[in-house]
Nucleic acid binder design. Structure first.
Length: 617
RNA sequence: GCACCGGUAGCUCAGCUGGAUAGAGCGCUGCCCUCCGAAGGCAGAGGUCGUGAGUUCGAAUCUCGCCCGGUGCACCA
């Protein structure tokens, strides 16, 4: 059992025996003792002074004496201002260290027989992935790893938005202006190739709109429809969508294409497949660079008509109701939400209809206990409505639904990651850039010079990707974050490479153990554990509870911050104490073993974030 | 207007199931490689934890009001 839990139970019992009052052991507060005080763990005594009918210090002393008597792991205690500081015996710490080193899966939990689906990425097929996707992907994939570490069977999925007006824009632009060009003929990465036609379409459409604004038709539209306080510029800005739907030639062509697609026109379908194929090939490359994968892909072209049966079901259960015009609604006003359409009067689906249908279809297929949707926080309301509706429909999996919502990634000067503004940070460019900088920095240092070219490249890649991934994951998902391109590839301070560096140091030690044939078994005879060693042990002990908390809260940033904290403590340890030239052979063996344990846990925890450790850097 | 989220050092972020003097990193000022890799360590400057009240022995943390910022409130997806 974890020492913290032991202490909680012991305090709970002590209070009961001494003062005859029962306290829930989980409510006993056990904190690591701050550095300025003597001890390893501190217990807050204030909650017990009432039942003890004593001063905080007197009660603390009494409880301390009681604990020391009954709990063998406690070496000594002291009392400061109502805080009971406990010192844990070296025997316990020795045992912990040995158990970490002996257990390659330390911190992980055995299979729990439960299954969870994590849906992430879910891109559109009309443009390449950008920084926003990267946050989504890293959150989804690290969450998957964390859930797996606590015992779940994880099914990683994405729903690809492969249909609709957007992809038709790319298709149309390519047909009209493409002159048969292909990714191969132009040498452009294939998803970017498709995205370029989308951009071209938007440009052409803008030109058409500007020209239209000069026509008599436009003038009369402005005359008849503008609000009193609107000048021409602001009116036409607002009017853009309406224009595109009602007046634009290109708009008409796109809608015509979408209709043909929906009617399964063979030529259009073939074109659609070709262009989406290009996009998928490009995505595949980016996913590979990011080191992520999926177990199951869903395509919106297969799911967008789902959900009509669930509407029938909802009507028969009176969860939904029908309005006079035939449209179907769900009323969630008593849950603090609004009424929501789930089926149009003409019988066609809306956004939520397909999500309802997809949820049921997927559960039928996957039978998971939990379903996690990694989707930007703009859709918070949508998911509240979706989950509440599924709950009312009595769907058996409704209690296990979770929206992992994340905030916008902003650029330092406040630009949004949108294609239109042209300030978008492209995923592939970013990946290339971080690796380039890592390579440059490593070359300057020259530490990796003895490695082969491939090994070097692989190490640099790990450093660059480690920097990027850590930078993004360390911020709590729900906060919007500022992405500073320069800082993101910084290799000093609170960064991925800082953590990797401590691992590389440890790796060097391990190689030396190997080479010099050092016997570490006498580590257990080391008697005088130093504060710098103790704080590492305390941190190691915490690993599994951090992973569990991260899984419960779907929060990878906890693991990132844990890793950084552990690395920081290791650097301090390294600086303050000698390992190889330690005072005694026992101290050397102990510190080597401790280093091994730290290296193992660092590799494991960073692994949960998808960050790989370099051997040298 | 209503709802949700955020507001902690110049900047980027931890801490938020109430607990000891509010922590890191970057940047700034200085130190530390004749000893295991200095992508490291140490020290200093820098904070009315948005704001006002309340609860409490104790509030960055809980409650309420207000201010600022963001997002959502489509028979769009």
């Amino acid at each position: 059992m974890n020492i913290v839990t032991t202490l909680q139970n012991a305090v709970s019992q002590a209070v009961e025996q001494l003062y005859g009052d029962s306290t829930e052991s989980s409510k006993v507060l056990v904190n690591p003792t701050p550095p300025d005080f003597t001890g390893d763990y501190s217990i807050v005594i204030f909650p017990f002074v009432k039942v003890a009918k004593k001063s905080p210090d007197a009660a603390a002393a009494e409880i301390g004496a009681h604990l020391t008597e009954y709990i063998s792991e406690i070496k000594s205690f002291n009392v400061v201002k109502g805080f009971l500081n406990l010192e844990i015996s070296d025997t316990y710490w020795q045992g912990l260290l040995q158990s970490v080193v002996a257990d390659p899966s330390f911190g992980r939990l055995p299979k729990n027989g439960k299954k969870v689906m994590v849906e992430y990425s879910s891109p559109n097929t009309n443009k390449p992935l950008h920084l926003g996707h990267i946050r989504n992907i890293l959150l989804g994939s690290s969450c998957s790893s964390i859930l797996e570490a606590v015992g779940y069977e994880v099914v990683k999925t994405q729903i690809i938005n492969d249909r609709g007006v957007a992809i038709c824009k790319s298709m149309l632009a390519w047909l009209k202006f493409g002159e048969g060009k292909t990714p191969e003929s132009t040498g452009i990465k294939s998803d970017h190739f498709v995205g370029d036609w989308y951009v071209l379409f938007e440009q052409k459409s803008k030109v058409e709109y500007e020209a239209w604004q000069e026509t008599e038709e436009a003038t009369s539209v402005f005359q008849s429809k503008h609000k009193p306080d609107q000048d021409e510029t602001t009116f036409f800005k607002d009017f853009k969508n309406k224009w595109f739907n009602d007046y634009s030639k290109l708009g008409a062509e796109v809608r015509d294409m979408l209709l043909k697609w929906e009617a399964h026109d063979p030529e259009i379908l073939a074109l659609w497949k070709k262009m989406n194929g290009w996009v998928y090939a490009g995505f595949e490359k980016t996913y590979g660079d990011l080191g992520v994968s999926f177990d199951k892909l869903y395509y919106e072209s297969d799911t967008y008509l789902l959900g009509k049966d669930i509407v029938e079901d909802g009507l028969s259960k009176s969860v939904f109701f029908k309005k006079d015009d035939g449209s179907v609604w769900v009323d969630l006003t008593d849950a603090g939400h609004d009424q929501k359409v789930v089926l149009r009067a003409d019988g066609t689906s809306v956004y939520i209809t397909q999500d309802l249908g997809t949820a049921r279809m997927r559960h039928h297929e996957l039978k998971c206990d939990r379903y996690v949707y990694v989707v930007a926080d703009e859709q918070n309301y949508h998911f509240q409505v979706l989950f509440e509706t599924l709950k009312r429909l009595g769907e058996p999996y409704a209690a296990g639904l979770h929206h992992l919502s994340y905030g916008l990634v902003e650029l330092p000067k406040g630009g949004r990651m949108k294609t239109r503004e042209g300030t978008v940070v492209d995923a592939d460019d970013l990946i290339e850039e971080v690796i380039r900088i890592a390579t440059e920095q490593s070359k300057d240092r020259g530490e990796a010079e003895t490695l082969s070219a491939e090994e070097k490249q692989e190490n640099f890649r790990r450093v660059g990707m480690g920097a990027l991934k850590f930078f993004i994951i360390k911020v709590h998902a729900k906060k919007k974050m500022v992405f500073n391109p320069e800082e993101s590839v910084d290799l000093q301070g609170q960064t991925g490479p800082y953590i990797q560096y401590s691992y590389v140091r440890i790796n060097g030690l391990m190689q030396r153990i190997e080479k010099e044939g050092i016997d570490c078994s006498i580590a257990t005879q080391y008697a005088n554990i130093q504060p710098q060693e103790k704080e590492l042990l305390v941190a190691l002990l915490d690993y599994s509870s951090v992973v569990q908390k991260a899984a419960e809260e779907y929060d990878p940033s906890l693991v990132a911050n844990f890793s950084y904290d552990l690395a920081k403590k290791y650097h301090r340890f390294w600086h303050d104490l000698s390992v190889f030239s330690a005072e005694t052979p026992e101290a050397r063996a102990f510190r080597l073993t401790l280093s091994r344990a730290v290296g193992q846990v660092l590799k494991s925890s960073m692994g949960l974030l998808g960050v790989e450790m370099p051997e040298r850097m």
